[in-house]
Structures are given as structure tokens and as C-alpha cells.
Design a protein around this nucleic acid. Structure first.
Lengths: 168, 168
DNA sequence: CGAAGATCATAGGACGTCCAACTATCGGAT
DNA sequence: ATCCGATAGTTGGACGTCCTATGATCTTCG
């Protein structure tokens, strides 16, 4: 199907080249950034494959779960954006699709007419539950790493995120 | 500007909720997947900010570097796709834009009329050099992690990628 | 040698993300 | 009381990624 000539890790290759070309101090950082890009793609596609039959994407699944975990099953758009760390327009996009699919509903905020509240529907909760179950079973319970690597990864990325001003 | 109420790490929060809701075995995996998504976004936006003034994106930068590192400054489209682990259509897209910007050129393959060779231009090399220098200085030399964390991260993600069939 | 199968590249479409611009609405300062 | 800056959402556009389908070209094998 593909090539059999022992496919080396392209990122290790790049790191070697980086060092040889006189940028040894930047080689590890380059490798880290590149690894992150690839790993993200791989993991995302695994997740999307699981969600596809349910007609949701990971982005929309995250919105649903945020609503499921909220007290009243209701949140302002703005709150969704800050919690998920995505641009407001991405929230509008996700909510548009979720609403079209009948999984959430836009309702006016009682006191502030600028804000729109998003309310999860019965169908939305069902999709969220099914999706969670399948993701837990097929991906989260088996992310492709040992338990030890998994927690180390989470810790390191937490430091990276904090350092980037993500939360702390 | 935003809220001052000590913003906790949303991912730690989610992990806690996951455990409380009866999915303790999947909580670490969920946290890992989610962390990867966020970290990817953060790092990518840092990189794109550096490249924007040069009118290239990271995806196109990667194509340019692949060509820079190749013997003759020439590679078939298909080769670019497999090396960068992206879909063929993404390569077509990137090459279209690079060619429009005069950074690469499409030339016919001498013996196989199906394949198209991509050749980097003088201008392409200059952009690649400048971009590399700036990325090295501003991002790769300082990825937001200690050197130790950086190498650990690369190692863990390598295991993840191999496990997903990325190379090994 | 000729048909069937594999490979290469492109076109069109769906999605998510960001940015810039714009409209409403709120709220605080003068 | 009013004016002006901050905040909430939407719209339109640029990009990257994938998927499916399609047209050319090899390649392999009966």
C-alpha cells in the first residue's frame, strides 16, 4: 500500500537537520511544536471518527458537554467562548449547527438584551450522553499512551498552557 | 477586561467532573485529548503570528522547508503529502497559494506524466530563511517549557504517534 | 497485449478557526 | 441626563483539513 522502506520518524529527522544546520538551541522546540501539530491531528481524527455517526463534531460536543455540566443546562454564548477558549464567531458557528440539529435552543436573556442564552434540549442531552459513552470507551479509556505517559502529558501541557496565559 | 475570579484550569475542572460522574478510568484520557487540542491552538497561534508578516502560514512554511531540505529543491506533490502527513488535497491547496505568491513553481515530471514536481524559487528560499530565523528566535528557542519538559513532551508524543501508526 | 487495479493530482463541498467590521445594548463618567 | 467606551453576537471572508468523486497515467497480470 505505502512504502516499505522503514519509515523513520519525520520529526526526529527534522530535529537532526535543524541541529546540523546550526540551530541546535531551537531544535527541541521545533520538534515539540511539530509533534504537537501531528499528535493533534491524529487524536482529532480518532475522535471525529467516533462522533461522525452521531452527526456532531468535537467542537460541538464540547459545547454540549459544557451545557450538560451547567446548573440549568443554559449558558450565555460569551461564557461558552471563554470556557472553551475559542473565538466568539466559532461559538456562533457551532451553535448555529447545533440549533439546526435541534440539540440546543437560543433563548433571550431575561435582563440583558445583548446576551443570548443557549439551552440544551432533550435530544441534545441524549446525543451528549451517547457520545460521551462512546468516546470514553473507544478513545479516552485508551488514548494510545500508558497511564503514566498520559498524566505526564497532561501535566506538561498544563504548564505550557499556563505559561501561555491560558488560565493561571 | 475579563473576570478576576481566579480562573482555574478548565481541563482540571473537567477531569474532576469526569471522575465524579462515574468515568474515572476515562478521565485522564479525556484530559490528555483536551489538553492536546488547547495546546495545539495556543502554539499554532503563536507561530502564525510570527509568520503572518511574511504572508505564509505554518502549513505552507512546512512545505517550503521540505523543499529547502531536499537535494534539488524539488519534490513530487505526493511525497510532500506523505512526509507532512496531510491529505493530498491539502498539498494541492498549499502549493496553489505558494505558487500564486511566487514561492514555488510546478514543473512536469520527466518520466511520469502523472506526477507534478514542486520546485522552490529564489524568493521561496528567502522567505523560508527569514521565517526560520524568526521562528527559531521567538518560538522554537522558547516554546514555553523547560528544556526537560520539552524533550519529555517530544518523547511522549513520539510514542503516541507511533502507536497511532504514524511512523514506526 | 490488453484489461483491471493502483497512483497522482485536482475540483467541489463541509467544517472549524480566526480576523475585521458592524449593530445593539449596557453602564459608568461627566 | 447624556455621551462614549465596553460588551454581546452576527456576518463575511480567508485558510487549512478532510472526504468523495473524477480524469490521467502507470503497472501488473492473466
Amino acid at each position: 500500500m505505502t512504502r516499505r522502506e522503514l519509515p523513520l520518524d519525520p520529526i526526529r529527522e527534522a530535529e537532526r537537520l535543524w541541529t546540523e544546520h546550526g540551530w541546535p538551541d531551537s531544535a527541541p522546540g521545533m520538534a515539540a511544536v511539530t509533534s504537537l501539530m501531528r499528535a493533534h491531528q491524529l487524536v482529532l481524527s480518532r475522535v471525529e471518527a467516533v462522533l461522525r455517526p452521531l452527526d456532531v463534531t468535537f467542537a460541538r460536543y464540547e459545547v454540549l458537554m459544557l451545557l450538560v455540566f451547567s446548573r440549568r443546562g443554559t449558558l450565555p454564548m460569551s461564557r461558552i467562548g471563554t470556557r472553551l477558549q475559542v473565538h466568539q464567531t466559532s461559538v456562533t458557528n457551532a451553535v448555529d449547527r447545533l440549533e439546526r440539529a435541534g440539540l440546543v435552543r437560543r433563548v433571550p436573556h431575561p435582563s440583558d438584551r445583548r446576551t443570548t442564552l443557549i439551552e440544551i434540549t432533550r435530544a441534545g442531552r441524549e446525543v451528549a450522553d451517547t457520545a460521551t459513552q462512546r468516546l470514553n470507551e473507544t478513545v479516552f479509556a485508551n488514548p494510545g499512551l500508558t497511564r503514566r505517559d498520559t498524566t505526564t502529558l497532561v501535566d506538561i501541557l498544563a504548564r505550557l498552557r499556563r505559561q501561555a496565559g491560558d488560565f493561571g
